[in-house]
Simulated assay, not measured.
Amino acid sequence: MPLYRRVLGGDFDRLPPEVRRLHDHPGRLCAAGRCRIERGGHPLARVIAGLFGFPPGGEDVAVRVCFSTARGVETWDRDFGGHRLRSRQGGLPGQPDLLYESFGPSRFTIRPRATAEGLDLQLCGVVLLGLPLPRPFWPEIRGRERVETGRFTFDVAIALPLIGLLIAYSGFLLPEAGTGDKGRAA
């Protein structure tokens, strides 16, 4: 069973079809679109964003994301105008309503919430370099998936206490024909 369907249970079916489609695929699905990327201006924000491999800023950036599933773990390969960022997501044993996303030296515990409008992601824990971070040091993360004009849209922002914005990116994705969906159009 796909990760988000497993974690959300019956609430998964509350999601708009365009959001469900990107999270309910067998094996592999790729989607492409455009996005806007904003990077934080604080000198430490630039250094930290670079360490995590976040893409540079841009107003109209081509984006492609391939979602692959193997052994209950999803790998998200993102390509922001030639800048690649990979993360992995999976379930947490004993916590069926939570998932994790890991990339670079970090692992985030997330509670997804499904509504008729889309998906919201709530941060519930952070591990950095194998050590749990105390709550005052957690980043502020906004993660939303919605549907606008018939297209899957995303809005992600990450900020740190005392430093401010690391990165924010928003845009749209359309599933590519022939990747996990037998060529059906969005």
Results as ranks from 00 to 15, higher is better:
22 L>H: 05
106 S>P: 08
75 T>R: 11
117 E>A: 15
94 G>K: 04
71 R>W: 01
61 V>N: 01
176 E>V: 03
44 L>S: 13
107 R>E: 14
148 E>N: 11
93 P>R: 13
167 I>S: 06
113 R>G: 06
140 E>N: 07
118 G>Q: 10
180 G>R: 00
32 A>E: 15
162 L>H: 13
43 P>A: 08
22 L>Q: 08
46 R>G: 14
81 G>M: 05
64 R>V: 09
25 H>N: 02
104 G>P: 12
174 L>E: 13
53 G>Y: 13
94 G>A: 01
28 R>W: 07
173 L>S: 06
135 R>F: 05
73 V>N: 01
44 L>Q: 07
132 P>A: 10
9 G>L: 13
135 R>T: 08
180 G>H: 01
56 P>Q: 02
131 L>C: 15
29 L>E: 04
98 L>A: 02
147 V>N: 04
16 P>F: 12
158 I>C: 10
97 D>R: 09
59 E>M: 09
172 F>P: 02
28 R>K: 09
38 E>P: 14
178 G>W: 00
184 R>S: 07
101 E>Q: 04
57 G>C: 12
111 R>K: 12
159 A>S: 15
181 D>I: 00
115 T>G: 09
4 Y>R: 04
114 A>P: 05
83 H>S: 13
166 L>F: 12
57 G>Y: 10
20 R>T: 10
23 H>D: 03
35 C>Y: 07
170 S>Y: 08
25 H>K: 08
108 F>A: 01
102 S>D: 03
48 I>E: 12
161 P>T: 03
117 E>P: 04
174 L>R: 14
169 Y>P: 06
83 H>T: 12
136 P>M: 10
126 V>K: 08
118 G>R: 06
8 L>E: 04
173 L>Q: 02
21 R>E: 15
60 D>Y: 06
